[in-house]
Design a protein around this nucleic acid. Sequence first.
DNA 1: GATGAATGAGTGTTCATTCAT
DNA 2: GATGAATGAACACTCATTCAT
Lengths: 201, 201, 201, 201
Amino acid sequence: MTNSVDRRTQAAQKRRRLTAAAARVLHEQGVERTTLAGIAREAGVPVGNVYYYFKTKDELVRAALGEHRDRLDELTAGLDRLPAPRDRLRALIEAWVSERETTARYGCPLGTLAAELGKRADGTPAAEAGAVIRRLMDWAAAQFRAWDVPDPDAHALTLVSAYQGMSLLAHALRDPAVMTREGARLLRWLDSLRAGPGVSP
Amino acid sequence: MTNSVDRRTQAAQKRRRLTAAAARVLHEQGVERTTLAGIAREAGVPVGNVYYYFKTKDELVRAALGEHRDRLDELTAGLDRLPAPRDRLRALIEAWVSERETTARYGCPLGTLAAELGKRADGTPAAEAGAVIRRLMDWAAAQFRAWDVPDPDAHALTLVSAYQGMSLLAHALRDPAVMTREGARLLRWLDSLRAGPGVSP
Amino acid sequence: MTNSVDRRTQAAQKRRRLTAAAARVLHEQGVERTTLAGIAREAGVPVGNVYYYFKTKDELVRAALGEHRDRLDELTAGLDRLPAPRDRLRALIEAWVSERETTARYGCPLGTLAAELGKRADGTPAAEAGAVIRRLMDWAAAQFRAWDVPDPDAHALTLVSAYQGMSLLAHALRDPAVMTREGARLLRWLDSLRAGPGVSP
Amino acid sequence: MTNSVDRRTQAAQKRRRLTAAAARVLHEQGVERTTLAGIAREAGVPVGNVYYYFKTKDELVRAALGEHRDRLDELTAGLDRLPAPRDRLRALIEAWVSERETTARYGCPLGTLAAELGKRADGTPAAEAGAVIRRLMDWAAAQFRAWDVPDPDAHALTLVSAYQGMSLLAHALRDPAVMTREGARLLRWLDSLRAGPGVSP
DNA sequence: GATGAATGAGTGTTCATTCAT
DNA sequence: GATGAATGAACACTCATTCAT
């Protein structure tokens, strides 16, 4: 019994190791330039064995997206402990800025994956990427709503759009300062909200 | 004499056809999923012949980025004919929105190319993509400056960042309405500027 | 004691399940397209466990051939209960025709396996397939001999050859009617025998 | 001009070399055990180059079947020069027997390919193999018809079925004498036809 | 004796790039 | 300068077989 549990645990751990490696390498190299061998090497797993856990490369991509979704959930779960919705949003922006070095180097994991996958004729794992981004938007909208800002969905769209834009620019220009500058602006924007009918962006 | 001119002209045309095809196909399929054979086919040029005009695939990618730069220049040149800088910026935003269907399908050409290229270890054609984006920012900054808005560079960053963000979201969610909504917001934002020292977006 | 007998019995049952599954799947898919995993799945046995019963895939193939030999023996044993040799042969032909749908879909199990295995450089399991076919020929020859037909071996060869030919054609043309037509002809041929020295086919 | 013709000719020759090699190797090793590398080696062509001429392995299989069809056409075209249909059929049988060594080693190319391909779920190149076999049957039927034998189609079926059966048995038993014996019987059978209402097989 | 997991050699296929004419 | 063909180094994926427990 202990044995089988151990083994099951080990297998689950390996799966997680592979998923984590996939998430990392796919973020760093993009989908098409990433080879299964590369992910396997990174995870310390022989190539052939990868296929015991994931039947195709696309499945690994999906798993990586799932990993990013889980990390997003962890992040928002942490933020949810803050009492004020506005503070949660502030903290979210600060989290984004704190990742500026990675973002400048590799872009936002979700954004860059979505951009690459979105061009496929069959939009297979692309929809998954979109769903995770929408999850972020939904969470943000919930905060705006709790905070009683009018048109919370529009504000969520603006916020997430701004995040994707600043991440892309930071990446394209290889300049983490973009994140700092735009992050600061977003914080000011948050502060300005509800101060009146509000000029949004 | 006439002959050699003809030939030179023909060659230049072929080069242009290849560049245009590269710009289109790379936008639609992304860099890694695009094959030289595909570009050649699209341009009506035999594969082997491509190498007479471009030594490597990367050079074709660079040429495609050059094509996008040229189109950007044409666009801004057209906008420059408008007398008021604010109207130029408004027209720019309207141009973005008018491309919403293509953007929802394939993303912003510059943004998606930059995202894909930016991950390469040797940032070879990535820098080119960044340069074109910066060119757009510079033009925008010039408008804000001409309009006498304080901190024109920050405003340009915000504007272009917003464009990249809304393009990415429209693409990721396959929803052109994102472009319409955020475009309208940007126009309101423009209108609100100079109404005072202004909390920007 | 009971335990060990049970276990021995269970093991024997598993072996039989595997052999039966192998016979079926190898018939339906051919040797090379059949995977051990597929046989194991069909038999309800974990893959790793197969190797406890069969050291190699080839051994499973041999076991499948043994299964077909056993079925052949059962068939002829049943036919042997008929008093007249000619009736036994008639019944054999009728048995062949009754299998026409399966044969049109997958060919004769022995014939198709022999055809596929016969090309191997080392004729390892090929000889086994040939031996089973010869067993059928021997039984047929025995009937012709008991029936006192001259040159029973030649007649057996003709009969079995006709069976293999009609099976292959029915399979190649995916037409079970081939079995019906040629089966009827074989029956007429049987009836014509002993009507004299006889022009055979 | 000469150049381009030369090149076109060379390319066609290479294609033919590949097709011939494929026909040979597929006959000797079967479809599944044959690797593209093996065919390429046999044809003296680098592996990658094979794909310039054939997009998939299946296409090569089809080409090999086409090769066998062409050889069949050549054979029957030669036989058609004989004035009497019965002599054409006799010569056909003699041709079969003369191939007995190859047949005993590798089986009938069409028959074994049809047997292997016929099991595929998607009957892709299987239909092609069946079509070539039917072509042989059609030719044989035409001879019986010209010879004014009643029910020429049934006789053609019997003849070709006999050929496939004897080939399979010769192969399964690795005994070319099967071809000799059954070939002689077929000749006697031919002679017996029209000598009366005829006992067929 | 049973079993999920591991392993690695191969297989078809793609594609940027080069070559010969 | 043009072009069909050649080349070879990947790559994703499969599978018989072995291993550890």
